[in-house]
């Protein structure tokens, strides 16, 4: 018996030392607020009945991004085998704002978690052929170029994944 994509996803994130928090649509704003480190920026979450807390500025500018500690953005997919999140490039800037702060909080729907890399790429194929772009992001930014592994080379030092349970039963 093989593990479900969601089990694999959370196990992979554990191996990456990436924190995971479950929430549901009604509790999302409250949950996210406990995770973020202000000042926070982000982009609107394109999920039904889901909102970000008021502490997150969802209309970031270069200046507010520069000052921010945390970014909250939506991920379009999670990949079980690797603990990766897929960050689409959008006109609201969700892709690149996720790269500038020390903490990135990607929010992914439980139903968008796929099992394997091949599954993820199969879903991305039509989207990329439609002109879209996306980043498969796995854990924080890292480098070993300075003689030892350091987190936060050009991007976030820390990633905290929020999984949005999509059935009414709530999270695990």
């Amino acid at each position: 018996m093989s593990a479900s994509p969601i089990d694999r996803f959370t196990r992979s994130l554990e191996d990456l030392d990436v924190a995971v928090t479950w929430t549901d649509p009604s509790g999302s704003a409250e949950t996210i607020e406990t995770i973020v480190e202000p000042p926070c920026v982000g982009t609107p979450l394109p999920f039904d009945d889901v909102s970000v807390p008021d502490v997150v500025d969802t209309e970031p500018t270069p200046r507010s991004l520069e000052a921010a500690q945390t970014t909250v953005t939506a991920a379009s997919m999670g990949i079980g085998a690797y603990g990766s999140v897929v960050l689409p490039s959008r006109p609201d800037g969700s892709e690149q704002v996720s790269l500038f702060t020390d903490l990135h909080v990607p929010v992914v729907r439980e139903s968008d978690i796929v099992d394997s890399m091949a599954d993820a790429i199969d879903q991305l194929g039509p989207r990329l052929r439609d002109g879209e772009s996306a980043i498969i992001a796995t854990g924080p930014s890292a480098t070993a170029d300075m003689g030892a592994l350091v987190r936060g080379a050009h991007g976030p030092k820390e990633v905290h994944v929020v999984i949005l349970s999509t059935d009414t039963e709530g999270g695990q």
Binding site: P62, R63, R90, E95, S133, I135, I136
Partner: peptide
């Protein structure tokens, strides 16, 4: 896997980060 596998289909939809228009 490395931290970032970028799949960019340029010109990308992401806005420019323009320091000359910071606000």
């Amino acid at each position: 896997i490395t931290s970032y596998i970028s799949l960019l289909t340029p010109p990308v939809d992401s806005p420019v980060v323009d320091v000359d228009e910071p606000d």
